[in-house]
């Protein structure tokens, strides 16, 4: 683990320096990255310009959902977002170069093409989150306050695990990278809205099959004093760390299996 972090820092540092050689372009990408996610939120603002509530949720409540998943996803995307481009490395054989180095492969691939501009998404998520907290009328208890940072961290870990899982499949199918987007970008979009507007089958899938609901829905609904979806007990709001750990374990196993397969087939 320490070795992985060290490798990640080194490689990411090199990429940051590389980006800085094109300063004008870098400034532009940071700005646009921020705007991209900002416009993403403008859509919700536009919606609320037309309606007072969505699925029975007020603007502040939707903003809380948005801020939580946005920040978590931003962190995961910043640190692990490069994994979705690993297919190219597998296809053109440059992954072999990574395998010849005395450093953990996952850290090398995750830090590959590290883009600081993706921090724009984290910043935007945090801003919406703060805005939501200002607007919200919630009876805060110490437990609810502590639940917030825990949710952000666990959410980021769950998204990161999904990204690693998705990257693992690239060892077998390099062209299927887009499927991961359904769960990462798609999951992030889904979680911005209240579970009440979706079909119950979809909500159950997100709770029990791909447990993205633990990124923000369950803790946020607890904070808002609303019932948990899909027949989950209220205590499930505190299960995010456990779910995150399970996701990491599954992703780790898939990653190992992926490397093993790559090393026996070489494709």
């Amino acid at each position: 683990m320490a070795d992985s972090l060290r490798t990640y820092r080194m490689v990411a540092g090199m990429w940051i320096r590389s980006t800085m050689t094109y300063r004008a372009s870098f400034a532009l990408t940071v700005f646009t990255s921020f705007c991209v996610t900002f416009f993403d939120f403008v859509v919700i603002l536009l919606m609320f310009g037309q309606v007072r509530g969505l699925g029975g949720f007020s603007f502040a409540e939707v903003a809380l959902l948005y801020g939580l998943t946005g920040t978590s996803f931003g962190i995961a995307d910043l640190t692990m977002g490069s994994l979705q481009r690993m297919g190219k490395r597998v296809r053109d054989g440059s992954l072999d170069t990574f395998l010849m180095r005395p450093a953990p492969l996952l850290a090398q691939v995750a830090a590959d093409k590290f883009a600081l501009r993706r921090f724009g998404r984290v910043a935007q998520g945090l801003m919406v989150l703060v805005w939501a907290l200002v607007l919200l009328d919630v009876a805060w208890t110490p437990v609810k306050v502590l639940l917030l940072p825990m949710t952000v961290v666990c959410g980021a870990v769950i998204f990161a695990a999904v990204m690693v899982l998705g990257a693992s499949t690239l060892f077998w199918m390099q062209d299927a990278a887009e499927v991961t987007n359904s769960f990462t970008y798609g999951g992030n979009t889904l979680l911005q809205y209240p579970p009440t507007i979706f079909a119950q089958e979809l909500v159950r899938g997100v709770v029990y099959v791909v447990p993205l609901a633990f990124v923000n829905w369950l803790p946020a609904l607890h904070i808002l004093g609303r019932p948990a979806p899909a027949g989950m007990p209220d205590a499930a709001a505190f299960a995010s760390p456990l779910v995150a750990a399970v996701c990491c374990a599954v992703a780790g196993l898939a990653w190992r299996a992926g490397i093993r397969s790559y090393r026996s087939t070489g494709s």
């Binding site: 094109y22 004008a24 372009s25 532009l28 990408t29 646009t32 990255s33 705007c35 991209v36 993403d40």
Partner: peptide
């Protein structure tokens, strides 16, 4: 601009 990523991002944003 050598590294066209900035402009690509702006266009991406416009498209989105």
């Amino acid at each position: 601009l050598l590294d066209g990523q900035g402009v690509v991002q702006v266009a991406w944003l416009g498209g989105l």
